[in-house]
Design a protein around this nucleic acid. Structure first.
Lengths: 223, 223
DNA sequence: ACCTGAACACCGTTCAAGT
DNA sequence: ACCTGAACACCGTTCAAGT
């Protein structure tokens, strides 16, 4: 559906260039840096030129979240030859890997409804996989949502732990910093938590993430 | 530890008054309304007077989240006579009820690390409960985190679904609105999702929330 | 110690104008 | 159609001053 009328002087930008600029700013400087004015400066136009491509800032954020979700929706979990648990695990790991690479953007994940086409595609993939595994369709729908809540919740909590801008430090460093924090818990007031501090400091690791995922799959497993 | 020197002209405010004002603004006008300037106007001081009580806006938000978490950490789930599953359920329901009553504030839940005293108290309570139920301490720590991820993730996704300011409409209305939205899913592209639309529209209900919680408890249950 | 007025360096967004 | 300059109504935060 080509629009009528003259094509205009030129189209110096594209939606994707704007989203890429927003993501880079988010990665480098955190949420404050990803302003409309910052994005415009990054791509070399006046601030209000952005409004030619997106109606408002919320639309930019929504499009960025969608784009990130879409990029994660691919990979080995599509291999129908593998056991369904392995495929779910592959998807969960891939989603986490991609989103944690952009902590500033990942923090925006749950800032709006998940109703875009990419989110629906993710839902569809998981639904299909679970039904293929023998889960009753109605239960598969609920289980899909449960999985999405867990995966996105775990990722959101993980990146929420990181304060400033810049990329996420290596897992080991983050665990060490948490351990130092948990060491401050007063054992007189919170004896259980103080005793569990070594375990708690590993919450943000891949193995805790997978442990949780499998406890959840245990509750879903139709066999 | 009383501070030395003269007491000052007067202390017209308290931390709690500021947090209450912030919560009311958040409830009525959404995140944009809960500005430092808005809060100051609401409590009748100049904008910068707020900085006598909190070092910056982030501290106000963190304190508000902590306060909300603390308020939810109470109730019947403390009854040690009841089965542990019922107690976890009571806590989960209470947390959701209280947080969903303030959707604007609930959206801030995962915007920072959960390391305050109220969050630790919640952790302690759950840990104690699970260990009392016979779960191995190391597993209990992991299970506690799993439960927190699920509960907060589900609540965050639920309130993310609501766009504007004002209180959350009744559950029935929200379900109806979602059903209308899901009805738009193209069945040719997403056959599974389109077929599951009636189930999906109920994701934000109490029974789906509890269903997910119990699938998760099934994976944790030591018996 | 606590509060105020004024200012600084930002925002998102709109509008009229240019091509 | 697309972009610009200028402006509007906001932000969070700081500073010097008052009591």
């Amino acid at each position: 559906m080509a629009t009528r009328g003259r094509p205009g002087p030129r189209r110096t930008l594209s939606e994707d260039e704007i989203l890429d600029a927003a993501l880079v700013l988010l990665d480098e400087g955190g949420p404050a840096a990803a302003s409309i004015r910052g994005i415009a400066a990054k791509v070399g136009v006046a601030p209000n030129a952005v409004y030619t491509y997106f109606p408002d800032k919320g639309a930019v954020v929504r499009a960025l979240v969608e784009k990130l979700l879409g990029e994660a929706d691919a990979g080995e979990f599509a291999d129908e030859g593998k056991p369904w648990r392995d495929r779910v695990e592959a998807l969960a790991v891939e989603l986490r890997r991609r989103l944690v690479a952009h902590p500033g953007a990942a923090a925006l994940l749950m800032s709006g409804p998940m109703d875009g086409p990419r989110a629906t595609a993710l839902n569809e993939r998981l639904l299909d996989l679970l039904i293929g595994a023998g889960v009753e369709p109605a239960d598969a729908a609920r289980a899909t949502y449960l999985l999405i809540v867990y995966v996105l919740g775990a990722i959101a909590l993980e990146v929420a732990d990181e304060t400033g801008p810049g990329p996420l430090p290596p897992e080991d460093d983050r665990v060490a910093r948490r351990r130092a924090g948990f060491a401050q818990i007063p054992a007189e007031v919170f004896p259980r938590s103080a005793a569990a501090a070594p375990t708690m400091s590993r919450y943000i690791t891949t193995d805790q993430y997978l442990w949780g995922l499998h406890r959840l799959l245990d509750g879903i497993d139709p066999t």
